[in-house]
Design a protein around this nucleic acid. Sequence first.
RNA 1: CGGGGCGUAGCGCAGCCCGGUAGCGCACCUGCUUUGGGAGCAGGCGGUCGGAGGUUCGAAUCCUCUCGCCCCGACCA
Length: 493
Amino acid sequence: MAKRITPRSEDWARWYTDVVTQAKMADYSPVKGCMVIRPHGYALWENMQRVLDRMFKETGHENAYFPLFIPKSFLAKEAEHVEGFAKECAIVTHSRLKTVQADGRATIVPDPESALEEELVVRPTSETIIYAMFAKWVQSYRDLPILINQWANIVRWEMRTRLFLRTTEFLWQEGHTAHATHQEAEEEALRMLDVYASFAEEYMAVPVLKGVKTEKEKFAGALRTYCIEALMQDNKALQAGTSHDLGQNFARAFDLRFQDEAGDWTFAWNTSWGVSTRLVGAIVMAHGDDNGLVLPPRLAPIQAVVVPIWKGTDPVDRILAAAREARDRLARAGIAVRLDERDSLSPGFKFNEWEMLGVPLRIELGPRDLEQGSVTTVKRPNRSKAPVPLSGLEERVPQLLEEVQREMLEAARARRDAATFTVDSWDGFRERNESTGGFLLAHFCGSSECENSIQEETKATVRCLAFGQPEEAGRCVRCGGPSPRRVHFAKAY
RNA sequence: CGGGGCGUAGCGCAGCCCGGUAGCGCACCUGCUUUGGGAGCAGGCGGUCGGAGGUUCGAAUCCUCUCGCCCCGACCA
């Protein structure tokens, strides 16, 4: 009828767009490449922020805020860094507009008189301005470590965008730290990678690979980039978070030095790490189905919805009274619960609508339920139904939500494992990559020649050198050269 | 930047080839009847057809220019 989602099997990209827009998570904005995050999408992001923020603080970090604008010269101080970002920067050149007459009508143009002496870059990431500030704050080893996080918006002028996955402006957090030793910085980078991985699995119900990026894929300016990689339902990989060991690259560029215990001047060691609103897209693509969004209970803005069902006019009052009581009791038990009292919509319509929005648990309450002194609960992912006695609501509903959370992770893990393939020949690699896609575990010599030619010919890239990948001598799937272990290849977003 | 598609009511579309003054579904409003998987009937509201120029007695429709968006590709720390 009114709203139909394009089935995943028919057109994956369209399905994704349909779900995001019809579930009211985001909408296209008047500005190309930018999106409006609507309340239902933003509430999910807020829940993610809340959990992550707590995890950052538990690991000793503090929030701060740095400016949106970065002097152009700052970006140029780290050679590799500017190389990586130069092609996607928005630049502020003027500070005023003026009205002029053109073709007989008034129009506004940048006032040439207001051209900036030094142009400003809208941050694509904040390493430069943050380490410039750190340099002012650090003199002694006693000033270290600095452990800072900021929640911010950033701008990267990508050529092609996709709601949540890659937009011109997006929201993220970026952690930036400074340490006295390389070892401490490494530990920090890995600690935050672990935070991301456990957040992805325990809250988003998205299993991830932890590993390290190749030279080609690492962050511009980093010594080493660690990442978490997830697999979406279309068998394409999504980089879900990164954590960088920046070495002393930025410290040298911004003269971030301190006097150590021996009185010697040393450059500090930095890390940076970030996740973005792209994670919202990850949840959509990891769990969604042809009925819409499926949200993990631990992050869902609405965890359960009570849908009253009545017959005739007589039992309406009794049903509504019972439904309101159920709602109130669940709310007191700490469940984010809604009661759908709208009287002009049929139950079927409401079922479909709440499923579209991804609410993990539906609680139906009709005359039949009331007679039995129970409600009917329905889990969003598989629509499995179970009666729950009214008397046991507060105990049972949280259990059901946890069951859904666990089942979603298990299902996602099963999908990923079923889409992870070991390939040993170049033909096998190409065939598998073409037919099903997914993670291809293949031997790789590590040369950039092979990495580039594999990407050119198959669009697949090395997603990461996964931790814990067993040692296994083999021959590079491309050139036959020696390889100490397999790496994960996949086509990626 | 290359290829493809699309701009007509809030949303989704038809009408365009073959010019004659705008229509369908959903949504919305009103009333009545309804409510265990997208309710029914009746009556309504709503559009300078993306913009500019041209051809014509007459343009959503034909011509020229222009703006914008979407999809695929190139690009993507």
